[in-house]
Design a protein around this nucleic acid. Structure first.
Lengths: 241, 241
DNA sequence: CTTGACATAGGACGTATGTTCGTGTATGAT
DNA sequence: ATCATACACGAACATACGTCCTATGTCAAG
């Protein structure tokens, strides 16, 4: 095959597509070996060989001895990708911006102390920390009296809530049956998360863990509802690559 | 803890500026040592230290052990280069995408069966169901191999995961110590969620609930890692008013 | 005074990664 | 047949680069 100015071979094209796509999704360039994998070539030298050709032809640029330094000069794309992708991107964009809610983290929730409540109503913006939540995860459209707490310690374990979890709550002083609430128990001097059930003569506080027994409160006054739990989020750390 | 928006120190700011500028002029990210040079620091560990802070604060992203993989999340510079509507569309899309991520729900996770995996690579859009997650909640920018599962039944309780919870996972066949993984145990014929620790002669699977005892697996072959757990979400239902 | 969190330096270590060389196999031109 | 050339594999090699451990100093809280 006489090789002059003419077009790219199948391999060249594949490499260019891979480079473009990889950059797009990862934000940096692939290594030689990764490129090799993408075109089923095990030899790094062969990839180098093609890369030099592409370089010569002006499709890419790279620096000597610098990892992942390939730049795509002339993007080669499968045309079918673009229109749909842009459209999709725009669709998401439209939804996304309005569908994200920033919820202030009011503090930490521990068993031994009452709930920290958000200082004022609307200090969302200067709150030291906050969580962003997709609105679709929230049960209510009204976001104004939501706040979040970070769980400290293992004391909420019977609510299936662990140290480090974030609970999103809605301010409330009363609750309906079946809702999960944060309550302060005067008798025990502690804050706890339980499912709330008002029964005929008493109130039943049911742990989320079905293996555990409920607490019964005879006197409604010895129990103070602080809020309703709306969402629990647990981020598992140390997951990177 | 979630995303904070605190002030950057002088060093942080300088690093961010350098990253932005370097990317702009070179088309790829600087190495740790190059960053060090730019702020007159000879120790790579110190740069790493700052980088981790910036990572935590959400200003940058990087992949483990990958050269020059730093990405600037909040570009400090304007993007007045690309002309036309497409560029504008992409700009908006870019912003939006960095806020919200749509993750397909591949199915249900039950103890008695292996994990359902996403059919194809990128069917985010036509997936029957999906969850929207704020990107700030995810540990990685690379969202392409994330998928979600709905938990069915009480069998994951010792992982502090309850019926109806949604677990967001990252495809993986191996894991590092301390990561929470979904594993299939040949001996027991079940899927379970555990913290993964490789010890000298065996593998320790530690339940999230600190009150429960770990499982030890002597033969690595009798255990199949299906993915790493990235996020667990519990929506408490029946909260209306 | 002690302790612990934070900031900083230096460097060992292992691996990720680009470079290069030797070799082999077609194919077409001489 | 011989030779040049494009294409391909694999391995050795050097080094670019990220990770991580140790040590030191500072400063505020206990």
């Amino acid at each position: 095959m006489a090789k002059r100015h003419p077009g790219l071979s199948e391999r060249h094209r594949k490499i260019m597509e891979f480079l473009t796509k990889f950059q797009e999704t990862h934000g940096y360039s692939p290594s030689i070996r990764q490129i090799g994998d993408s075109i089923n070539v095990k030899s790094t030298s062969l990839v180098d060989y093609y890369l030099n050709q592409l370089l010569e032809m002006g499709y890419i640029e790279r620096e000597n001895r610098i990892s992942r330094s390939i730049r795509v000069v002339q993007p080669v794309k499968a045309e079918s990708e673009l229109p749909g992708k842009v459209a999709e991107a725009l669709r998401i964009a439209g939804n996304a911006l309005s569908d994200l809610v920033r919820i202030p983290i009011a503090g930490r929730i521990v068993a031994s102390a009452p709930l920290p409540m958000p200082t004022s109503d609307l200090n969302y913006y200067d709150a030291e920390s906050s969580v962003d939540i997709a609105r679709s995860l929230l049960p209510t459209r009204d976001v104004s009296d939501l706040f979040a707490l970070e769980v400290s310690g293992d004391s909420m374990i019977d609510a299936m809530v662990n140290d480090g979890d974030i609970v999103v709550m809605k301010k409330a002083a009363s609750a309906n049956n079946g809702e999960m609430v944060a309550v302060w128990l005067d008798d025990k001097d502690e804050t706890t998360l339980k499912y709330f059930y008002k029964e005929a003569t008493r109130i039943r506080l049911q742990p989320a863990n079905p293996n555990m027994k409920p607490i019964y409160v005879e006197d409604p006054k010895s129990l103070r509802i602080m809020g309703k739990v709306v969402l629990v989020i647990r981020q598992i750390k140390s997951v990177a690559g």
